[in-house]
Amino acid sequence: MKLFRMAAVLALVAGPAFAQESPHINLMADGPSKTEDEKAADAAREKAYKDTLKKIPDAKASSDPWGGMRADPPKQPAPKAAAATSAPKKTKAGTAAN
């Protein structure tokens, strides 16, 4: 009886691992193939769709009625790091170092 239980446990553990190794074959077709009439109808529908897209006018630049009322964006102050590097550095004795 113990041997039967061990065999069952081994089969349950090995089953998923064996399934991962098997090749993946799709036995179902993607779908029934279309008839010539259906293909022609799809082509006509696609052509009509593309023609409709060509009729749509290009988008114009947005008209902002308040655009003239806005002030210019604030100017950014000069970076402080550039001003600090141009000054001569002093040593402990108080003399300028080059």
Rank of each mutant, 00 (worst) to 15 (best):
Y49G: 04
K89V: 04
S63E: 15
T52C: 08
A44T: 10
S33Y: 07
K60Q: 14
A7R: 04
D42I: 10
G15R: 01
K60H: 13
N98M: 03
A29Y: 01
P88H: 03
P73H: 07
M6T: 05
P32Y: 00
P79K: 10
S86R: 05
A41N: 02
A19Y: 12
A84D: 12
A14V: 08
K2N: 11
D64T: 03
N26T: 13
L53V: 11
P88Q: 03
A93G: 05
A97C: 14
A29P: 00
A87N: 05
G67V: 10
S22I: 07
K60N: 14
L53G: 07
A14I: 09
G94M: 05
D64C: 06
A43S: 09
D51Q: 04
A11H: 00
E38Y: 01
S62I: 09
K89Y: 02
Q76K: 15
A96D: 09
A19R: 08
F18V: 03
A96Y: 10
A96S: 07
A96I: 13
M6R: 08
L3Y: 13
A14Y: 04
A17D: 00
K34V: 06
P77S: 03
A82D: 10
K34S: 13
M28V: 09
A43T: 08
K80A: 14
M1V: 12
M28N: 10
E38W: 03
T85I: 04
Y49H: 08
M1E: 14
P77A: 01
H24W: 07
L3S: 10
D37G: 09
T91V: 04
A93S: 06
S63A: 15
S62A: 13
E21T: 11
M28K: 12
K90D: 06
T35F: 03
L12K: 00
D72M: 13
T91Q: 06
G15C: 07
M69A: 13
L27C: 01
A81L: 08
T35M: 01
L3H: 12
K92R: 01
E36K: 07
A97E: 11
P65E: 14
